[in-house]
């Protein structure tokens, strides 16, 4: 139904090579998240799959069919844009009906499908409004409605939640995950937010400078990052990297320790330091500790630790959870 295969996909804008060469195999029904820092080529890759950008070289197959030179409409994909990209001059009803109208489906059938989609997305009361009269979350739902109504073989999401406020983002994240479970269709989701990536994905593609750094399940990527970039990108707060003599002692050029894999004590430990920032979230406490010798490290403790700015603390890493990297930044 929605198997997507990329073969040596390459994209240049003029003289600038944005995507050198990507091979990727996305299984039918899978929820894949493209994640990476801004400018890493994740949106470009999505637009190449959508057909909104032309390939420079390489091939794209959808369900075994070569669509490298097909128009977007021919690819049986639906896309949700960051800016929603609703048709401002049409009502919600007409927005959702638009892909069906383009497909030449008859009016009574369109009516049935639009109403069904509106019901799923809680939009029934808003069908006669125009996008300008809706809130951000409602607009995003209309954009999703427009995508699901046609039953495409795969859905593409281009940072769909980045214009929403934090609370709404969490809600929509759950809604999209639920939708994936209901529809069982392939979804490709682009985001720079690694929390979205971790919580929503079946598998994550971590991209940097147009290259796939790692492709795997969220926990696999979290537990076994292939290199320093992936290790630093996935996980919040960021992993701490230490390259001084402590690293050598532990048999690596550089070591990485996640903030949650450290023990904090007021009396004793491996590294002594001063708290320069203390973030009390209630559920967690994040401490920025300025140590002698290894610089500032960030730690994360469960619950409230009652440690404040200026306090002296001792930090001890959990040696079983240390990541070791060689000179090239590859983990081993």
């Amino acid at each position: 139904m929605g198997k997507i295969h990329l073969e040596k996909v390459n994209k240049c804008f003029g003289d600038i090579e944005v995507i050198p060469s990507i091979d990727l195999e996305i299984e039918d029904g899978e929820f894949v998240v493209f994640v990476g820092p801004s400018g890493c080529g994740k949106s470009t890759l999505l637009r190449l799959i959508a057909g909104l950008e032309d390939l420079t070289s390489g091939k794209i197959f959808i369900n075994g069919q070569d669509v490298s030179n097909s128009a977007p409409a021919k690819r049986q994909l639906a896309m949700v844009f960051q800016s929603y990209a609703l048709y401002p001059h049409m009502t919600v009803y007409k927005n959702i009906a638009f892909p069906l109208k383009m497909a030449g489906i008859d009016k009574s059938e369109i009516d049935k499908k639009v109403k069904a989609a509106a019901k799923v997305l809680n939009l029934t009361d808003y069908l006669e409004r125009t996008p300008g009269q809706l809130s951000g979350g409602q607009r995003q739902r209309v954009a999703i409605g427009r995508a699901i109504v046609r039953q495409p073989s795969a859905f593409l999401f281009d940072e769909p939640l980045s214009n929403l406020d934090a609370a709404l983002r969490v809600n929509m994240r759950v809604e999209i995950t639920d939708l994936h479970k209901q529809l069982k269709r392939t979804m490709i989701y682009v985001t720079h937010d690694q929390v979205e990536a971790m919580t929503m994905a079946d598998r994550i593609v971590v991209l940097q400078a147009g290259n796939v750094e790692q492709f795997g399940t969220p926990l696999d990527i979290y537990n076994n990052p292939i290199n320093k970039f992936v290790a630093g990108f996935i996980g919040s707060p960021k992993m701490n990297f230490i390259s001084v003599h402590d690293a050598k002692q532990l048999g690596a050029f550089e070591i990485g320790i996640r903030p949650e894999h450290m023990n904090i004590s007021k009396t004793e430990g491996r590294w002594r330091g001063v708290v320069t920032v203390a973030e009390h979230l209630g559920s967690d406490t994040f401490l920025h500790v300025k140590t002698e010798g290894i610089g500032t490290i960030v730690t994360r403790g469960d619950g409230e630790l009652n440690i404040n700015y200026g306090d002296i603390v001792y930090v001890t890493p959990n040696l079983n959870k240390i990541y070791r990297f060689n000179e090239k930044g590859l983990s081993f």
Partner: peptide
């Protein structure tokens, strides 16, 4: 915004439909 036109392309609009309807 060109995204709106791209959306119509994704929705299956042909060139003339994109121009006339959107």
């Amino acid at each position: 915004p060109s995204e709106i036109l791209e959306a119509s392309r994704m929705d299956g609009a042909k060139l003339w439909q994109e121009i006339i309807f959107v």
